[in-house]
Each structure stands twice: as C-alpha cells, then as structure tokens.
Amino acid sequence: MTKRVPLNGSEKESLRASLDRHRDVVRWKIYGLDDEALRQPMTPSGTNLLGLLKHLATVEYGYFCTTFGRETEPLWFDPYTEDMQVAAHESTEDIVEFYDRACTAADKTISELSLSTLGTSWNGNTVSMRWALIHMIEDTVRHAGHMDILRELIDGATGDHPPA
C-alpha cells in the first residue's frame, strides 16, 4: 500500500487519504484471484470476496451520493437485501467496475462539499460529510478485515498490501 495519511494534513485531506488507503486494501484483496475463488462462499452465511466488494460499492453510493442528494446509477438489485449477494449473471468485471464507479462518484461529492455539509442518511438521520467519511472508513476497514481472512483461507495471502 503506497497511500499514507499525511502526518500534518488537514482534517479532510487526512480522512480522504485514510479512505483511499483502505479502498486500495480492498482492491488488493481481490487481485489475482479467478472468478471461482472470488465467488466462493467462505462462511456459513455465504460471505465471499466479490459480495463484499459489491456491498462496499453500494454503501459508497449510499453514504456519499444518496445522503447528499447526488445522482447514483440505477441499481439492478435491492440494496437492502441483495448487496452482498452476487448473482450468476453478474460478472467479476461488472462488480469491480461498479465499485470503481461508486468510488469515483463518492470522491466527486467529497471534493465538492465541506465536512460540515449536512445530508439525510438512508434511515432519516441528519448527518454531516464528516460523519459520512468516518462511517465509510469504518465500514471499509471492517470489510477489508473480513476480506483479509477470506483471502488467507483461499490462498494464504495476508496483509494490507501485496508482498514485495
């Protein structure tokens, strides 16, 4: 992982760097695996790497775009019940591109709004951009940890970046 949180950065710069840093971890966790490995259910509930990536894309759109009245792409699934499930017709490429588009849309919103800008979250709470950034960092870190465990079970790879 090459991104680091600046030691003396502004609040927004530091939060953005932290989010980007963990987004890179998530991307690395799926790197180099074939479709079968990415879809392999690794827990009794069926959790798999590709489903976690789809979920993270969904919440990037939700917490940054929907919350602050920004456009999102139309979702082809129910975000409340199917965001961690990957259907047979959903390709790995489709899910990776969905994640990239969601992060790009989120970044645009983050760049354009101040940390004190208020929006309405999915459950009706009034939240600030600061809160949304912190929450998304928490969610990304949490699921990056899940992905680390799943990846280790698949091929033994661990850590927050590929080995040198």
Score class of each variant (00 low, 15 high):
122 W>Q: 06
129 M>H: 00
2 T>E: 10
160 D>H: 13
77 F>K: 02
1 M>P: 00
154 I>D: 05
54 K>P: 04
110 I>Y: 00
102 A>C: 09
14 S>W: 05
12 K>S: 09
142 R>M: 12
18 S>R: 12
69 G>N: 13
32 G>N: 00
122 W>E: 08
11 E>M: 15
49 L>T: 01
125 N>D: 13
42 M>E: 05
120 T>Q: 14
138 E>D: 15
11 E>D: 15
148 D>T: 10
159 G>D: 06
44 P>I: 06
19 L>R: 05
61 Y>W: 13
134 I>M: 15
53 L>G: 05
91 S>Q: 09
90 E>C: 11
150 L>H: 03
42 M>A: 14
14 S>V: 01
42 M>Q: 11
58 T>C: 02
86 V>F: 04
139 D>K: 08
31 Y>G: 04
1 M>E: 02
36 E>R: 07
53 L>K: 03
4 R>E: 09
97 E>A: 11
91 S>P: 06
92 T>M: 04
84 M>A: 03
144 A>H: 14
134 I>S: 15
73 E>M: 12
147 M>W: 01
9 G>I: 03
19 L>P: 05
55 H>I: 08
99 Y>A: 07
88 A>D: 15
129 M>S: 02
7 L>D: 15
163 P>L: 10
55 H>C: 06
26 V>M: 01
107 D>T: 06
158 T>N: 07
129 M>K: 02
32 G>C: 01
12 K>H: 12
126 T>W: 10
